[in-house]
Design a protein around this nucleic acid. Structure first.
Lengths: 203, 203
DNA sequence: TTAAGATAGGTGGTCTGACCACTTTGTGAA
DNA sequence: TTCACAAAGTGGTCAGACCACCTATCTTAA
């Protein structure tokens, strides 16, 4: 009395096992659709349904005429689609900004005790560089912050929200904000971080 | 020279438009695969690839022999799959706990100024009720907290992480924790909330 | 008349085979 | 040697055929 899973879900599972047992890494090639179909005793269409699902999640990349490849996790595809469905509810747009700010704030606090002087200098230069677009500055700045937290999951959620918010409107802070944050890092003042974020909050 | 999208991606887009223009709501029925196939001038397999993708994202639900229906957004399917891929990296397990705690903390802070005495009483009873499992207490408790934040997105991310963490191990706080948090709410002390969370953090 | 059972039609689930478009590789001719 | 072309492999797509499942309707027996 197995719960009768759909074939494409089994295929999904098998592909995952294959990746694991063969130690595939981003960039590596998966077997061809026909090969998988034969190996897993499933129709090619079922294999394709599974692959499309994984592709949409951003876990693989298919290249016409070449093959299917593991990709580094890029949630962008997922984001676009989810956005087109979810963002219809107008309320969620505001939610996204709130949550993104919240996560940025906490990341900034976690990075506090880990960031080095050299990194602070680099970021200072970044913010004051007139040749870089503000939007790019924001991303690079917080990319660095999130790297320091060493919480990959947090970074991923943030990137996801970045993608979302990007489609709504610009979402950088004024450049004052970044400089003040860096100076708090330099002077090793922890508590004012929270205050700083709340002050610049874009509600 | 259009960038030549794949058929299933166009279908994806058409389905979304269909839902929007017909004002479909969760529970409503989508046209059958064959009907969509004919209407959109695409093969049935392409339509299915699109539907599988949407299904995996938890946006629709297909019932064998009945049809395809819009569902309220349930990320659980996505979670399971992403989990099976991502959780291979052992490090992320710890990440999940960290991020979940972080979000619970922030939600507790946001709820601070919005929670009523009556709700505090209800939660007090909940925690002290010996008939309820600890795990259930945790969920109910924070469900209430997240409702007060009125940030649906935050609640969703939390539920997602709950699902994840559930598969790892129990993750409640000692019941002391909940009672102390409630007493902070009662005595209207904001700052100690942060400290409380950090003290009980399960690192 | 009513309730149980049989049946037909619609729907998703799956497989096969065919063809197309694209890329890489190999082969043969200049 | 070099270049052009052919062949093979791969993803992209479609059409058609079944199967399994659900539902509504019709039939039949109580």
């Amino acid at each position: 009395m197995t719960p009768k899973q759909k074939v494409y879900q089994e295929v999904l599972h098998e592909i995952r096992k294959f990746i694991e047992s063969n130690d595939l890494e981003p960039g590596d090639k998966l077997p061809s659709e026909r090969e998988l179909s034969e190996k897993l005793q499933a129709g090619r269409s079922s294999v394709r349904e599974a692959l499309r699902a994984i592709e949409l999640l951003g876990l693989i990349e298919t290249r016409h005429g070449e093959g299917t490849f593991l990709s580094t996790y890029r949630p962008y595809q997922t984001v676009d689609l989810l956005a087109s469905f979810i963002l219809q509810e107008n309320k969620t747009k505001n939610d996204i900004m709130l949550v993104k700010e919240l996560i940025e704030k906490e990341a900034a606090k976690i990075a506090f005790s880990r960031i080095t002087e050299q990194e602070i200098n680099t970021l200072n230069k970044l913010i004051q560089d007139p040749a870089i677009r503000d939007e790019q500055k924001h991303r690079t700045f917080f990319n660095c912050i999130f790297e320091k937290t060493e919480i990959l999951l947090l970074a991923r959620i943030w990137m996801l929200l970045e993608e979302f918010s990007h489609t709504i409107h610009a979402d950088e802070y004024p450049s004052d904000f970044y400089l003040k944050l860096l100076s708090l890092y330099e002077s090793k003042e922890y508590e004012p971080i929270e205050t700083l974020f709340n002050f610049y909050s874009k509600k």
